[in-house]
Simulated scan of single mutants.
Amino acid sequence: MELYTSFLLLSLTSFFTLINPLAIMPIFMSMTADLESQKKVHTARKAVVVSFFTLLIFSTTGEWVFHFFNISINSLKIVGGVIFILMGQDMLQARLVRTKVDKADVDTYVNDISITPLAIPMICGPGAITNGIVLMESTTNVMEKIILIVVIAVVLMLTYIVLVNSATIYRLIGPTGNNVLMRLMGLIVMVIAIEFMVSGITPIIRQILKISP
């Protein structure tokens, strides 16, 4: 049970900080400013649903991709750790790490902004996809796989709630509060990055030095 709890906390923390709904919130507000409330809710719902299935597909097919390209999970952990460090560094400086959308380009996305850029790559970005693949590969039984899928669904539901109530939340916490929370999430992301890199490098070093685990 303790093992499941640790995996649950790792999955929940990593996905929430990497998806970071608070970072998406200002962009969502600007892109849906001229839409009616019902349209905003529909846009947020569709973006979350698309993100869920995208993460689910990448997470569950990651093992097949590894075997096809002969890629090691340890190598992916190291690369994922580097990606997370870069993302965490941006968060620590309170910079949005999502795709920037110029006002001149908003009209291009009006017809289906829920898929691009909201779902991909803002919600379901390279960090979240890598995290899903790495965590799914590290599961040892069906229960852990179920926990991971449920965590993805829960985090995306929280993201949906944040987006739908974005105007209210932004008024409550203000720009300063938003920056503080982003920096805290950035610190957590960088800690997770180090954990991933260490867990990926250790087996490789042991293999090179022929040290038994």
Score class of each variant (00 low, 15 high):
F7R: 01
L8D: 09
F16M: 06
T17V: 15
I19E: 02
N20P: 01
L22G: 00
P26W: 03
F28E: 07
S30D: 08
S30F: 14
L35C: 10
L35G: 03
S37V: 08
K39D: 13
K40I: 06
T43I: 14
A44G: 10
V48I: 15
V49E: 09
S51P: 11
F53S: 06
L55V: 10
L56W: 11
L56P: 12
I57R: 11
F58K: 05
T60S: 10
N70P: 00
I73V: 07
I73D: 00
L76S: 01
K77W: 00
K77H: 01
I78W: 03
V79W: 06
V79E: 03
G80A: 04
V82H: 02
V82I: 15
I83Y: 08
I85P: 06
L86F: 08
L86G: 13
M87G: 13
G88A: 04
Q89A: 06
M91K: 07
L92W: 05
R95A: 12
L96F: 05
L96I: 13
R98V: 10
R98T: 13
T99Q: 14
T99R: 13
K100V: 11
V101G: 06
K103D: 15
D112V: 13
S114H: 14
S114A: 11
I115Q: 07
T116F: 15
T116K: 12
P117W: 00
P121H: 04
G125R: 04
A128D: 04
T130Q: 03
N131Y: 07
G132Q: 02
I133F: 02
V134D: 00
L135A: 01
M136F: 09
E137F: 02
S138E: 05
S138Q: 07
M143H: 02
I146M: 11
I146E: 07
L148S: 05
I149H: 05
I149Y: 02
I149M: 13
V150H: 05
V150W: 00
V150C: 15
V150Y: 04
A153F: 15
V154Y: 10
V155Q: 05
V155N: 10
Y160L: 13
Y160M: 12
Y160W: 15
I161A: 15
V162T: 15
L163K: 11
N165V: 08
N165C: 13
I169F: 06
L172R: 07
I173K: 03
G174F: 00
L181D: 02
L181Y: 10
R183V: 01
M185Q: 15
G186C: 04
G186P: 04
L187F: 14
L187I: 11
V189N: 06
V191I: 12
I194H: 04
E195R: 12
E195L: 12
E195H: 12
S199K: 05
T202L: 11
T202Y: 02
P203R: 03
I205V: 15
